[in-house]
Design a protein around this nucleic acid. Sequence first.
DNA 1: CGTAGTAGCATAGCGTGCTATACAAAGTTA
DNA 2: TAACTTTGTATAGCACGCTATGCTACTACG
Lengths: 151, 151
Amino acid sequence: MSETPRGPQRLAPAESLGFVVNRLARLFAAALQRRIAPLGVAPAQFGVLLLLYERDGQTQAELARVFEVEQPTMANTLNRMQRDGLIKRAPDPSDARRALVRLTTKARRLQQPLITEARAVNAAAVEGLSAGELEALRGAAARVTANLRAP
Amino acid sequence: MSETPRGPQRLAPAESLGFVVNRLARLFAAALQRRIAPLGVAPAQFGVLLLLYERDGQTQAELARVFEVEQPTMANTLNRMQRDGLIKRAPDPSDARRALVRLTTKARRLQQPLITEARAVNAAAVEGLSAGELEALRGAAARVTANLRAP
DNA sequence: CGTAGTAGCATAGCGTGCTATACAAAGTTA
DNA sequence: TAACTTTGTATAGCACGCTATGCTACTACG
């Protein structure tokens, strides 16, 4: 079936799937950043805000799990959000280890503008793709994600 | 055709294409890192090495263009590679502004091991995808990349 | 020739990701 | 209850991406 590669081993970095995905992630982040920076929100903060809009008062560990980032990464992001007045941390009365992350009024006021900008980025990104192509993209990406998550 | 979204605007962050792509990029980087860290090479350094294996003696600006990263990003990566003994910088006799980036013997010795590990990551990533699905993935990713590069 | 513009590189500062480590609170088990 | 384990957070240090800024060297043009 698939032939074992022979001869001198070479690799063109710019065509590897890893590079393509890395560049795409940077382009997504840059596009989002251009649109939400005027609102005083950074890309990683944006994701956390979206989640808290759906359900306020989660713990740091829960947020880290949803975004699949390490706990110190989320801790730093939340520190910056607290510094910028987007969240507060309130001690959990039922568990002295936890702090519940809560939106500030300032953050709540940003909900609709942020969602508008995010939709615009998404719409621009998938322009020209049919529903079927988009579904194929998501499906293939999900498979690759699962493949890389395993080991 | 497509209906304008109405009512309260909501967004589930974990399903957005941007998040999927971001997570996938992190998974690629982590998979590569696990395999090449024992060789003393970091993911961004790995890409530069691959390029220099194909053509040694490029300038920092050329490298930045190929990888589509900003010049200071490439400068920092090259500084780390020089610190780690992977490259040397030699002044360009024809242009005093430029420095030609050249592989060290140590870096050249890593070529085959690095390519072996990279192939393994790639093979693991696309496992279970047909050639057609992979082509569809690349095609859709290329379209999204072009969409986001434009503005 | 001299001035203006462009191109290459360095540095500072920051956001977002990671690992490693430490510590306190809660849960479990002997 | 005491000891052990697990869970939640914090901190240090690093890699890699970005923007903003400045300096030097080359180029082009008057």
